[in-house]
Design a protein around this nucleic acid. Structure first.
Ligand code: ZN
Ligand code: ZN
Ligand code: ZN
Ligand code: ZN
Lengths: 131, 131
DNA sequence: GTAACTATGTAATAATATAACAATAAAATT
DNA sequence: AATTTTATTGTTATATTATTACATAGTTAC
């Protein structure tokens, strides 16, 4: 269910911690600024941690925003199948966990019959608050 | 069917032209380099054209690659609903035109009943050639 | 203990994108 | 036609995002 936390390195834990505390996606340099008091001074330290955390599915990258958000989707065992809704007004981002959607996309075949088990989907709109 | 071309400005035409000649997505600075002989010397000139071309749907941005590709999807009247397949080995990118898929996604409702008519979907995998 | 691997620290730089402002050109209004 | 407005262009500088390269330290496997 929940992924194991023990095997995270010191820097990975620090970076994950700050991202998990944020409701909204964080940008790499904002993370860097926030972890400088903890000793991470330079971009590579943050980017390395981010890379690993994305790889193991603890966080996801919102590609259209160059930002990172913690995975709070318990069904999201696969780091490879991600879907988000993004409010274009307040930039609120939510991870969509719909087994129906993920099944549909995982089973999708293109015209050449090719299947993909990795995808990223970003929905855009105006959220309820902003309407 | 095909969008009108007349109302494009000089720089927009130049940038679109170079992107349409490329089979694969082009990066902004690669475009810039290629259009310098035509008088576009600085990033803003390229980025402005790119912004407009994306807005009117003549090109799409591949967000995970920071690259731009010409729309060759005749069904893609909406610049707002885009889907691509990306080979993680050779970086070959194809626009997916599946009315079934676009219907499914345009009709998708999240848990709060919210609908989105704008989305971007990127599928990843290894293409036939690379297998 | 040594080799191999993993993680860290650090400086420099590359790659991507925008802000700000001046100058032109085209379109709409009078 | 002259005026106002709007869209486009040119230019410099700068902001933001991300990686390369290399040195050091810690951990694991043998
Ligand atoms: Zn997730
Ligand atoms: Zn909102
Ligand atoms: Zn298209
Ligand atoms: Zn390939």
């Amino acid at each position: 269910m929940a992924q194991k936390q023990q095997n995270l390195s010191k820097n990975q834990k620090i970076v994950l911690d700050i991202i998990e505390k944020s409701v909204q996606p964080m940008k790499a340099y904002s993370i860097l600024f926030n972890v400088q008091k903890k000793g991470l001074k330079a971009p590579p330290q943050v980017y390395r941690a981010l890379d690993k955390l994305v790889e193991i599915g603890k966080i996801h990258k919102i590609e259209s925003r160059n930002a990172f958000i913690a995975c709070r989707n318990s069904a999201c065992t696969i780091a490879n199948a991600t879907a988000f809704s993004i409010c274009e007004s307040c930039e609120d981002v939510k991870e969509i966990s719909s087994s129906k959607l993920s099944k549909y996309l995982s089973n999708f075949q293109d015209k050449e019959g090719m299947k993909y088990n990795k995808y990223n989907l970003e929905f855009f709109g105006i959220c309820k608050k902003c309407k």
